[in-house]
């Protein structure tokens, strides 16, 4: 794939699109008309309108904001709405497959319901009481990190590319990068008082992550998932359970949370 370049005129392009369900599937070829500026999602819509009305795909905003149209385009997990056709060589065939880490429902649509089940396990936001004037005060610098996590559009590309989920299918022991980002957004929220460290260790299984940073690489929102979310969570787990001094401090004070420094 080449970096973006100016496109002129309409060309003909061969696409191969995954069609089928869990029982039977094939890569089907379609030739489409590629206009300047077109993205892969436009090509899929063109196929639906002219050649295969029942071709299944998810999409909503078509502007990289909702995270619905995730797919694997020439082997790379990407948003179809943010992948320009012109970024591929004119003669190159573009192959579109569904996310591999989740069971196929039909064509490009996968069953991502497991993610919603994981989210339910994470203890919700539990704010401390308001100030006497009825407000909560937070400085912008205190929330910059949390706001980075909250940019997540739940496209699940990070889940798709994570070895623990993709290659080892450890969905019963591991929450995946998305939910470390979610847990971190709550743990590092200046107003939050809940303790999620045991859950992060046990039901989200943060220890299984071996920091290959694949999730960070595919994130369309450029969230530094590994460095900013996962590693600090790992540190919290380590100091709670495996650092003798911290364990002692925790026993004496009874305080569940670590001091906030170093985030």
């Amino acid at each position: 794939m080449q970096p973006a370049k100016a496109e002129t005129g309409t060309i003909s392009r061969l696409m191969r699109v995954f069609r089928g369900d869990k029982n039977r599937s094939e890569l089907k070829e379609f030739t489409i008309k590629q206009h300047p500026g077109m993205v892969v999602l436009d090509a899929i819509h063109q196929i639906q309108a002219d050649q295969a009305g029942d071709l299944a795909c998810r999409w909503n905003c078509k502007a990289g904001k909702c995270g619905s149209c995730s797919a694997e385009i020439n082997g790379r997990p990407r948003l179809m709405c943010m992948t320009r056709m012109g970024d591929f060589e004119p003669g190159e065939t573009i192959t579109v497959r569904p996310l591999k880490a989740f069971p196929v429902i039909k064509d490009l649509v996968t069953d991502v319901s497991w993610n919603y089940e994981i989210n339910k396990k994470i203890k919700p936001f539990t704010p401390k009481p308001k100030n006497a004037d009825g407000t909560w005060r937070m400085q912008q610098y205190e929330i910059d990190r949390v706001q980075e996590f909250r940019k997540c559009i739940e496209c699940f590309l990070c889940q798709d590319v994570c070895h623990v989920l993709r290659d080892h299918d450890k969905k019963s022991e591991f929450g995946g990068p998305r939910f470390f980002v979610r847990a971190a957004s709550l743990e590092m929220h200046p107003l939050d008082t809940a303790d999620r460290v045991p859950m992060i260790k046990d039901s989200l299984g943060v220890g299984l992550c071996n920091i290959t940073k694949c999730c960070t690489e595919v994130c369309p929102e450029s969230i530094t998932i590994t460095d900013n979310a996962i590693i600090p969570l790992k540190e919290r787990v380590v100091s709670r359970y495996f650092d003798p001094l911290a364990v002692l401090w925790h026993k004496i004070t009874g305080l569940p949370k670590q001091p906030r420094g170093g985030e």
């Binding site: 369900d21 639906q48 009305g53 029942d54 071709l55 299944a56 429902i105």
Partner: peptide
């Protein structure tokens, strides 16, 4: 008219 089955069929949904 739409072709295919009722399962995740954007043509029928449209």
């Amino acid at each position: 008219a739409s072709n295919g089955t009722r399962a995740y069929n954007p043509g029928w949904n449209q």
